[in-house]
Amino acid sequence: MEKPGRTPVTFTPMRAAISRRMVESKSKAPHFYVSTDIEMEAVIAANNAINEGRSGDDRVTLTAWIVRALAQSLAAAPALNAVWSGEALERVDAINIGIAIAIPDGLIAPALLDCANKDLPTLSAELRDLVARTKANKLRPAEFSDATFTLSNLGAFPVTQFTAIVTPPQVAILATGKSEARAVVRDGVVVARQMLTATLSADHRAVDGALVATFLGDLKSRLESPAGLA
Protein backbone atom coordinates (compact mmCIF):
# COMPACT_ATOMS: atom_id res chain seq x y z
CA MET A 1 0.00 0.00 0.00
CA GLU A 2 1.52 3.30 -1.09
CA LYS A 3 1.66 6.07 1.46
CA PRO A 4 0.41 9.43 0.23
CA GLY A 5 3.20 11.73 -0.87
CA ARG A 6 5.73 8.90 -1.23
CA THR A 7 6.87 6.98 -4.29
CA PRO A 8 8.30 3.49 -3.78
CA VAL A 9 11.60 3.01 -5.59
CA THR A 10 11.98 -0.29 -7.40
CA PHE A 11 15.61 -1.42 -7.45
CA THR A 12 17.03 -2.16 -10.88
CA PRO A 13 19.45 -5.11 -11.07
CA MET A 14 22.22 -2.47 -11.16
CA ARG A 15 21.12 -0.86 -7.88
CA ALA A 16 20.64 -4.27 -6.29
CA ALA A 17 24.18 -5.25 -7.29
CA ILE A 18 25.67 -2.02 -5.94
CA SER A 19 23.67 -2.39 -2.74
CA ARG A 20 24.83 -5.98 -2.18
CA ARG A 21 28.50 -5.20 -2.88
CA MET A 22 28.64 -2.09 -0.70
CA VAL A 23 26.93 -3.77 2.26
CA GLU A 24 29.34 -6.69 1.88
CA SER A 25 32.33 -4.34 1.79
CA LYS A 26 31.34 -2.17 4.74
CA SER A 27 30.28 -5.13 6.89
CA LYS A 28 33.30 -7.36 6.16
CA ALA A 29 36.19 -4.99 5.50
CA PRO A 30 37.23 -2.72 8.40
CA HIS A 31 37.89 0.53 6.53
CA PHE A 32 40.37 3.20 7.47
CA TYR A 33 41.11 6.44 5.65
CA VAL A 34 44.28 8.43 5.00
CA SER A 35 44.42 11.75 3.12
CA THR A 36 47.06 13.95 1.59
CA ASP A 37 47.07 17.26 -0.29
CA ILE A 38 48.98 17.15 -3.58
CA GLU A 39 50.26 20.23 -5.37
CA MET A 40 49.29 19.90 -9.04
CA GLU A 41 51.16 22.93 -10.49
CA ALA A 42 53.95 20.86 -12.06
CA VAL A 43 51.60 18.23 -13.52
CA ILE A 44 49.32 20.92 -14.95
CA ALA A 45 52.33 22.69 -16.55
CA ALA A 46 53.65 19.39 -17.95
CA ASN A 47 50.20 18.46 -19.21
CA ASN A 48 49.78 21.83 -20.93
CA ALA A 49 53.16 21.30 -22.62
CA ILE A 50 52.20 17.81 -23.82
CA ASN A 51 48.85 19.07 -25.11
CA GLU A 52 50.50 21.80 -27.17
CA GLY A 53 49.36 21.02 -30.71
CA ARG A 54 46.98 18.27 -29.58
CA SER A 55 43.25 18.77 -29.88
CA GLY A 56 40.01 17.01 -29.01
CA ASP A 57 40.36 13.32 -28.20
CA ASP A 58 44.12 13.47 -28.63
CA ARG A 59 44.53 15.61 -25.52
CA VAL A 60 45.98 14.03 -22.41
CA THR A 61 43.80 14.35 -19.31
CA LEU A 62 44.85 14.98 -15.72
CA THR A 63 43.21 11.66 -14.82
CA ALA A 64 45.76 9.92 -17.06
CA TRP A 65 48.58 11.49 -15.04
CA ILE A 66 46.98 10.29 -11.81
CA VAL A 67 46.60 6.75 -13.24
CA ARG A 68 50.21 6.78 -14.42
CA ALA A 69 51.47 7.88 -11.00
CA LEU A 70 49.18 5.38 -9.27
CA ALA A 71 50.53 2.53 -11.39
CA GLN A 72 54.09 3.40 -10.36
CA SER A 73 53.15 3.83 -6.69
CA LEU A 74 51.25 0.52 -6.69
CA ALA A 75 54.28 -1.21 -8.20
CA ALA A 76 56.24 0.11 -5.22
CA ALA A 77 53.51 -0.98 -2.75
CA PRO A 78 52.33 -4.41 -3.96
CA ALA A 79 50.38 -5.01 -0.74
CA LEU A 80 47.76 -2.54 -2.05
CA ASN A 81 47.50 -4.29 -5.44
CA ALA A 82 45.78 -7.35 -4.03
CA VAL A 83 42.45 -9.14 -4.04
CA TRP A 84 40.66 -11.51 -1.68
CA SER A 85 40.10 -15.03 -2.93
CA GLY A 86 37.67 -16.35 -0.35
CA GLU A 87 39.47 -15.94 2.99
CA ALA A 88 42.91 -15.80 1.33
CA LEU A 89 44.63 -12.62 0.17
CA GLU A 90 46.48 -12.65 -3.16
CA ARG A 91 48.88 -10.04 -4.49
CA VAL A 92 48.49 -9.53 -8.24
CA ASP A 93 51.41 -8.95 -10.61
CA ALA A 94 49.37 -7.01 -13.19
CA ILE A 95 48.30 -3.53 -12.13
CA ASN A 96 44.71 -3.22 -13.34
CA ILE A 97 43.28 0.07 -12.10
CA GLY A 98 39.49 0.14 -11.97
CA ILE A 99 38.09 3.48 -13.07
CA ALA A 100 34.80 4.43 -11.42
CA ILE A 101 32.48 5.60 -14.20
CA ALA A 102 28.99 6.98 -13.64
CA ILE A 103 26.35 5.39 -15.85
CA PRO A 104 22.55 5.74 -15.79
CA ASP A 105 21.22 4.56 -12.41
CA GLY A 106 24.58 3.61 -11.00
CA LEU A 107 28.24 3.18 -11.59
CA ILE A 108 30.76 0.61 -12.69
CA ALA A 109 34.53 0.52 -12.30
CA PRO A 110 36.00 -1.39 -15.25
CA ALA A 111 39.72 -2.06 -15.25
CA LEU A 112 42.33 -0.29 -17.31
CA LEU A 113 44.42 -3.43 -17.75
CA ASP A 114 48.18 -3.63 -17.22
CA CYS A 115 48.67 0.06 -16.37
CA ALA A 116 52.30 -0.40 -15.30
CA ASN A 117 53.46 -1.10 -18.84
CA LYS A 118 51.69 1.78 -20.59
CA ASP A 119 52.99 5.29 -21.19
CA LEU A 120 51.02 8.46 -20.56
CA PRO A 121 49.52 9.01 -24.06
CA THR A 122 48.51 5.32 -24.19
CA LEU A 123 46.84 5.51 -20.78
CA SER A 124 45.02 8.69 -21.77
CA ALA A 125 43.73 7.16 -25.04
CA GLU A 126 42.74 3.91 -23.33
CA LEU A 127 40.95 5.78 -20.53
CA ARG A 128 38.87 7.63 -23.11
CA ASP A 129 38.15 4.36 -24.95
CA LEU A 130 37.23 2.59 -21.69
CA VAL A 131 34.72 5.31 -20.76
CA ALA A 132 33.19 5.22 -24.27
CA ARG A 133 32.89 1.44 -24.30
CA THR A 134 31.47 1.37 -20.77
CA LYS A 135 28.72 3.75 -21.84
CA ALA A 136 28.18 1.72 -25.05
CA ASN A 137 27.98 -1.60 -23.13
CA LYS A 138 31.03 -2.98 -24.91
CA LEU A 139 33.29 -3.99 -22.03
CA ARG A 140 35.44 -7.10 -22.21
CA PRO A 141 35.19 -9.79 -19.51
CA ALA A 142 38.67 -9.09 -18.09
CA GLU A 143 37.88 -5.38 -17.80
CA PHE A 144 34.70 -6.27 -15.95
CA SER A 145 36.37 -8.71 -13.55
CA ASP A 146 40.07 -8.11 -13.12
CA ALA A 147 40.54 -4.72 -11.44
CA THR A 148 43.10 -4.88 -8.61
CA PHE A 149 42.61 -1.34 -7.21
CA THR A 150 40.09 1.43 -7.91
CA LEU A 151 40.34 5.15 -8.63
CA SER A 152 37.24 7.23 -7.99
CA ASN A 153 37.85 10.71 -9.36
CA LEU A 154 35.14 13.31 -8.69
CA GLY A 155 37.43 16.09 -9.91
CA ALA A 156 34.93 17.07 -12.59
CA PHE A 157 32.58 18.22 -9.79
CA PRO A 158 33.04 20.96 -7.17
CA VAL A 159 34.31 18.36 -4.69
CA THR A 160 37.14 19.19 -2.28
CA GLN A 161 37.56 15.69 -0.89
CA PHE A 162 35.57 12.54 -0.18
CA THR A 163 35.97 8.99 1.11
CA ALA A 164 35.05 5.94 -0.97
CA ILE A 165 34.05 2.38 -0.10
CA VAL A 166 36.52 -0.35 -1.06
CA THR A 167 35.30 -2.43 -4.02
CA PRO A 168 35.34 -6.15 -3.14
CA PRO A 169 37.47 -8.21 -3.63
CA GLN A 170 40.06 -5.39 -3.69
CA VAL A 171 41.72 -3.91 -0.59
CA ALA A 172 42.00 -0.21 -1.43
CA ILE A 173 40.40 2.65 -3.37
CA LEU A 174 41.66 6.18 -3.98
CA ALA A 175 39.19 9.06 -3.95
CA THR A 176 40.32 12.30 -5.60
CA GLY A 177 38.58 15.65 -5.63
CA LYS A 178 38.97 18.70 -7.82
CA SER A 179 42.32 20.36 -8.42
CA GLU A 180 41.72 23.95 -7.32
CA ALA A 181 43.64 27.03 -6.21
CA ARG A 182 44.10 27.01 -2.43
CA ALA A 183 46.08 29.07 0.04
CA VAL A 184 49.14 27.11 1.15
CA VAL A 185 52.38 28.00 2.90
CA ARG A 186 55.62 27.92 0.86
CA ASP A 187 58.88 29.16 2.43
CA GLY A 188 56.89 30.75 5.24
CA VAL A 189 54.63 32.72 2.92
CA VAL A 190 50.98 32.09 2.11
CA VAL A 191 50.61 31.62 -1.64
CA ALA A 192 47.98 30.27 -4.04
CA ARG A 193 48.68 26.84 -5.54
CA GLN A 194 46.62 24.30 -7.48
CA MET A 195 45.93 21.58 -4.91
CA LEU A 196 44.15 18.23 -5.02
CA THR A 197 43.15 16.16 -2.00
CA ALA A 198 43.50 12.39 -2.35
CA THR A 199 42.01 10.02 0.22
CA LEU A 200 42.82 6.34 0.30
CA SER A 201 40.29 3.95 1.84
CA ALA A 202 41.93 0.68 2.80
CA ASP A 203 40.92 -2.67 4.26
CA HIS A 204 42.65 -2.95 7.63
CA ARG A 205 42.59 -6.76 7.43
CA ALA A 206 45.08 -6.45 4.57
CA VAL A 207 47.22 -3.38 5.27
CA ASP A 208 48.15 -0.91 8.01
CA GLY A 209 48.34 2.85 8.29
CA ALA A 210 52.10 3.28 7.91
CA LEU A 211 52.07 1.37 4.60
CA VAL A 212 49.21 3.50 3.29
CA ALA A 213 50.92 6.69 4.47
CA THR A 214 54.11 5.67 2.66
CA PHE A 215 52.11 4.88 -0.48
CA LEU A 216 50.38 8.28 -0.42
CA GLY A 217 53.69 10.04 0.16
CA ASP A 218 55.13 8.22 -2.86
CA LEU A 219 52.11 9.15 -5.00
CA LYS A 220 52.36 12.79 -3.89
CA SER A 221 56.08 12.89 -4.78
CA ARG A 222 55.50 11.41 -8.23
CA LEU A 223 52.78 13.96 -9.04
CA GLU A 224 54.63 16.93 -7.56
CA SER A 225 57.84 16.04 -9.50
CA PRO A 226 56.26 14.51 -12.62
CA ALA A 227 59.37 14.17 -14.82
CA GLY A 228 59.21 10.38 -14.36
CA LEU A 229 55.61 10.18 -15.54
CA ALA A 230 55.70 11.67 -19.05
Binding site: P13, M14, A17, I103, K138, L139, R140
Partner: peptide, 16 residues
Protein backbone atom coordinates in the same frame (compact mmCIF):
# COMPACT_ATOMS: atom_id res chain seq x y z
CA UNK B 1 36.61 -11.16 -32.45
CA UNK B 2 33.56 -10.37 -30.27
CA UNK B 3 31.18 -13.28 -30.95
CA UNK B 4 28.50 -12.63 -28.35
CA UNK B 5 27.32 -10.63 -25.37
CA UNK B 6 26.86 -11.61 -21.74
CA UNK B 7 24.25 -9.95 -19.59
CA UNK B 8 25.19 -9.03 -16.04
CA UNK B 9 23.42 -7.01 -13.39
CA UNK B 10 25.63 -4.03 -14.10
CA UNK B 11 26.50 -4.16 -17.78
CA UNK B 12 26.52 -6.04 -21.02
CA UNK B 13 29.93 -7.55 -21.69
CA UNK B 14 31.27 -8.76 -25.02
CA UNK B 15 33.10 -12.06 -25.16
CA UNK B 16 35.62 -12.96 -27.80
Amino acid sequence: QPIGELETEKATVEFE
